[in-house]
Write a protein that binds this DNA or RNA. Structure first.
Length: 258
DNA sequence: ATGCCAGGTAACACCTGA
C-alpha cells in the first residue's frame, strides 16, 4: 500500500512546523508539494529527512517552486515541463518512487487577471502539459500527476459560481483544457470515490472563507490507467487547514496497491 | 470597484496569490 498526497504549502519555511506535524501524523509515503517559495538551497531538508523522506526539489526565489518527498529513493528526476526552454517559472518536477511509480508535482499557473498576459501563459502551460501527458501515456506506466491545477472543474466545485465567474480558474478555456487532459485517459482519484458536490481543497485566508466553508476544489490527483488500476481509496484531509498558521490549501490524497 | 489575509523581499511599501 502506497499513500500519496499533494499539498500546496504556501511556503515550506513558513509551514515547516505544520508540515512536520502532518507528515508524522498522516504518514504519507509520497508527497507532492507546491509553492515551496524557496530556492533549492533554502529547503529545510534535514528536518524532513529526519522523518524518513528522500527529497527532490525544483525551487525558485520568492515564488512557485515544487518538490517530491518519498520514503523510497527518488529516481530519474526531471525538472520543468518540456516545450518551452524560456520558461523560468519552477512549476513542474517528476520522478520515480518505489521503483515503478512515476509521480509529478504540478503547480499550474493561476492566470489572473484574465485580461493580462498571465491568462495566455496559463493556457499555453496547459497545452504543454497536455502534450507531455500525451507522450508519457505511451510508456504505459503507473503515473500520478498531482498538484494545484488552479482549475475549478465544475460549478459545484465552488461555494458560489457567481463569485468566481470572471476568474481564470473557471474560464471555459481553462476548463476545456483540464477536461482535454483528463480525456487523454486520466482518472481523477478523488472523483473515483466521492461524487458529492462542494468538496474543497482551498479556502481563502480572507473574509472568513474557512469558517464559512467558502472553498474551491483546485487540487487534483490524475492517474494513468495503470495507476488507476491500483487505486483503492482517495480523499481530502481537511485537518491541516484548521490549524494555526495553516496553508490556504489542504492535502488531497490517494492510496495505491503495491 | 477595492480591500479584506498571508508570505516574501526589502524596507518600514509593494508584489503575488485564487
Amino acid at each position: 500500500m502506497i499513500k500519496i498526497a499533494t499539498w500546496n504549502v504556501n511556503s515550506i519555511k513558513a509551514r515547516l512546523p505544520n508540515a512536520l506535524a502532518w507528515l508524522k501524523e498522516f504518514a504519507p509515503d509520497v508527497v507532492l508539494l507546491q509553492e515551496i517559495k524557496t530556492v533549492d538551497e533554502g529547503f529545510p531538508r534535514m528536518e524532513i529527512e529526519d522523518l524518513g523522506y528522500n527529497i527532490e526539489t525544483h525551487g525558485q526565489k520568492t515564488y512557485n517552486g515544487v518538490a517530491i518527498l518519498s520514503k523510497s529513493p527518488i529516481e530519474d528526476v526531471s525538472r520543468g515541463l518540456p516545450g518551452d526552454d524560456t520558461d523560468e517559472q519552477a512549476r513542474y518536477i517528476e520522478g520515480t518512487a518505489f521503483g515503478n511509480l512515476r509521480v509529478a508535482s504540478v503547480y499550474l499557473p493561476n492566470g489572473n487577471p484574465i485580461d493580462t498576459e498571465k491568462f495566455p501563459y496559463k493556457l499555453g502551460w496547459m497545452d504543454r502539459l497536455y502534450s507531455h501527458v500525451q507522450t508519457s501515456l505511451e510508456d504505459e506506466e503507473s503515473i500520478i500527476l498531482g498538484g494545484d491545477y488552479n482549475v475549478i472543474p465544475n460549478d459545484d466545485d465552488v461555494y458560489d459560481p457567481n463569485a468566481v465567474a470572471g476568474d481564470a480558474l473557471t474560464q471555459p478555456e481553462s476548463r476545456a483544457r483540464f477536461q482535454a487532459i483528463k480525456n487523454l485517459g486520466l482518472t481523477d482519484a478523488l472523483r473515483s470515490f466521492n461524487h458529492a458536490p462542494h468538496q474543497y481543497s482551498y479556502w481563502d485566508y480572507q473574509r472568513g472563507a474557512w469558517q464559512k466553508d467558502n472553498g474551491l476544489l483546485i487540487d487534483h490527483l490524475l492517474l494513468t490507467p495503470q495507476a488507476a488500476d491500483r487505486l483503492t481509496d482517495a480523499g481530502i484531509d481537511k485537518d491541516p487547514r484548521g490549524k494555526e498558521k495553516a496553508s490556504d490549501h489542504t492535502p488531497v490524497w490517494c492510496v495505491l496497491d503495491d
